[in-house]
Design a protein around this nucleic acid. Structure first.
Length: 279
DNA sequence: CCAAGGCCTGAATG
DNA sequence: ACATTCAGGCCTT
């Protein structure tokens, strides 16, 4: 019996939100900041450290949300096929670095870069008789040489990583505050970080700052919207900042305050149709 | 405000 | 083989 409270762990982890996850036996293990999470097939979490966060957002009213975003046959189909897909509430620093790294890249490479960063700058821990590297702390990356960060394969994004970490250390980016800010206030703040534009900002907000109206518009989402919808398209050839904002406003007025969930269902469906790899 | 080019890197393409 | 293109953007001109 599927109901709205059932979590499809497989689909959730394999939906482009997280990168440092692997499956061993019947469990998924993942790095979440300074913590390691172990998830069974129904989404029950045990962890290396105390885990007080609602990682799978069980407090969201999925029945209400799904009712609200079920606006058309395309969305309904995506929801029907991938019921149990959740948004995750990640460690914000790891999420921020992850999506800075993601720009102009692909999932496989992002994963490798993040693994190397963790190995090089994160602490080695043992959990459940296995070894893991937790995600680097902001201080560590802030103090790291750009040259050394570059060795992880992050290329021109390396200097962004360092200064982003530095802004967190200096409290210019305060995730606790941002979590309480509105969507637009938060976006304004995190877009001050070099390497964070509209798309990366939306990912960080949706996946780690509790901003469910965030709707990341990457190349895939633009393609999806143009394929299935007649009124969601860009007026320009390239994704300019203005056009991004206009399209985002249209989307939110269409789907409502939980638009981010709609994005995740659509993205998952279309990428599966094209048989893209997730991790 | 928009278009165009550059950018690390590695896999895919010709 | 080897060159070119492209990939889940961002920044500068």
């Amino acid at each position: 019996m599927q109901n709205f409270n059932t979590i499809n762990v497989e689909n959730t982890i394999q939906s482009g939100q997280v990168f440092l996850w692997q499956k061993t036996d019947d469990f998924w293990y993942g790095v979440n900041g300074q913590n390691i999470l172990k998830v069974d097939k129904i989404g029950k979490i045990t962890s290396f450290k105390k885990n007080k966060s609602d990682f799978f957002r069980n407090n969201d009213n999925l029945e209400k949300i799904i009712k609200m975003i079920s606006k058309d046959s395309t969305t309904k189909k995506a929801i029907k096929n991938y019921l149990g897909l959740r948004l995750m509430d990640q460690d914000p620093f790891q999420c921020m670095i992850s999506f800075i790294v993601s720009s102009n890249s692909n999932i496989q490479k992002i994963k490798i870069c993040l693994e190397r960063l963790s190995e090089k700058f994160g602490e080695k821990v043992e959990f459940d008789k296995k070894e893991f590297f937790v995600f680097p702390k902001p201080e560590t990356l802030a103090e790291a040489q750009i040259k050394e960060i570059m060795k992880c394969g992050t290329g021109y994004r390396s200097k962004f990583i360092k200064s982003a970490a530095n802004m967190v250390v200096e409290n210019k980016i305060d995730f606790k505050k941002l979590r309480k800010y509105s969507y637009s206030q938060t976006r304004e703040e995190i877009c001050k970080v070099p390497g964070i534009g509209n798309k990366v900002a939306d990912c960080i907000m949706l996946f780690s700052l509790n901003k469910l109206e965030a709707f990341p518009l990457d190349r895939w989402m633009i393609r999806i919207l143009e394929k299935y919808y007649s009124n969601f398209h860009l007026e320009t050839k390239t994704i300019t900042e203005k056009q991004y904002e206009l399209l985002h406003e249209k989307i939110v007025s269409y789907y409502g305050e939980y638009a981010g969930y709609a994005q995740q269902f659509l993205f998952k469906m279309e990428r599966e149709n094209f048989d893209k790899k997730w991790l």
